[in-house]
């Protein structure tokens, strides 16, 4: 690494390096960000969830969307893998099934950016323990 020759240099360097710790910074207040959970159980991975996760991370990075992409366990929709759950700030989570690269692109461009629903929504058919308790 070359020497820092000026404040402008340092700022440039900071911007380049930021991505390195960005993930950790974001994780402190996830409710303000777009959260994407990718179902990564055996079934999901076999259907290509890993590639979808990589694609989502790269694509949202390219478009400078502040998002938190995490992997999670089996959501139970093994019939519709790869599945992802997208939570926009102040919105209920929405689960999309059969997500291939094309649909992922659509989800980013339409749902995440503009809030328009796209095909492939799986209605959630269960409550989680946490929600139950709040009632």
């Amino acid at each position: 690494m070359s020497k820092v020759k000026s404040l402008a240099d340092l700022r440039k360097m900071k911007d380049e390096l930021q991505s390195k710790v960005h993930l950790r910074e974001q994780s402190d207040n996830p409710e303000k960000l777009v959260q994407v959970k990718v179902s990564m159980a055996t079934c999901g991975i076999a259907s290509g969830a890993k590639e979808i996760m990589n694609y989502m991370i790269d694509e949202m990075d390219n478009q400078a969307i502040e998002a938190l992409v995490t992997q999670t366990g089996c959501m139970g929709f093994c019939h519709a893998e790869p599945t992802i759950e997208v939570t926009l700030p102040n919105n209920a989570p929405i689960v999309y099934g059969h997500v291939d690269q094309k649909r992922a692109e659509e989800i980013i461009n339409k749902y995440i950016i503009r809030g328009e629903l796209v095909d492939g929504i799986i209605p959630v058919n269960y409550e989680t323990v946490k929600e139950n308790k709040n009632d």
């Binding site: 340092l10 900071k14 390096l17 950790r24």
Partner: peptide, 25 residues
Amino acid sequence: FINPENIDEYIAREGYAALGKALTE
């Protein structure tokens, strides 16, 4: 939060920006 043995992570968290600001501005 950061790896203390890696200056890059400190810089990414606005490290040395205060020094730069003081020296130049």
